[in-house]
């Protein structure tokens, strides 16, 4: 199973995971992590611990391009072949991730999730 980590400011990640749970039911391999009061080094340590052992792949979702979570996830993606990072996270992206992850390869899944994110924005 491809695992997801929602890594954001304050308690946004927790709220995202709760919201996914309220729509699709609680998901075991979708976890949240906050950058609250952490240095850059501590953010990396926390993210690495949250990824756990290597498995089928991990997608790190961040919300703000250029933010400290984004930086940390970019660094981890560079180091780990099993990690993909996508930013600009919205609820349609997380719902698509849960619904498609069992039938889609990691790189295709990230592209697909980005597409759902774009299509979820309607001015």
């Amino acid at each position: 199973m491809i695992r997801g980590i929602v890594f954001t400011h304050a308690n946004l990640g927790e709220a995202f995971c709760e919201s996914v749970g309220s729509i699709l039911g609680i998901q075991e391999d979708l976890v949240c992590l906050s950058n609250n009061e952490l240095s850059s080094e501590q953010m990396m340590d926390a993210l690495v611990s949250t990824t756990g052992p290597e498995g089928d792949g991990i997608v790190v979702f961040t919300a703000l391009f250029g933010g400290s979570c984004w930086q940390t996830a970019e660094r981890l993606q560079r180091e780990r072949s099993d990690v993909r990072h996508i930013t600009g996270t919205n609820l349609p992206m997380l719902l698509a991730f849960i619904n498609k992850r069992e039938e889609t390869a990691l790189d295709d899944l990230v592209d697909m999730v980005a597409g759902y994110g774009h299509r979820g924005i309607k001015p």
């Binding site: 400011h9 240095s39 850059s40 250029g66 933010g67």
Partner: peptide, 11 residues
């Protein structure tokens, strides 16, 4: 700022 350039700064 030990995070240097990040959301609190850019945004």
């Amino acid at each position: 700022d030990d995070r240097l350039l990040h959301g609190q700064v850019t945004q």
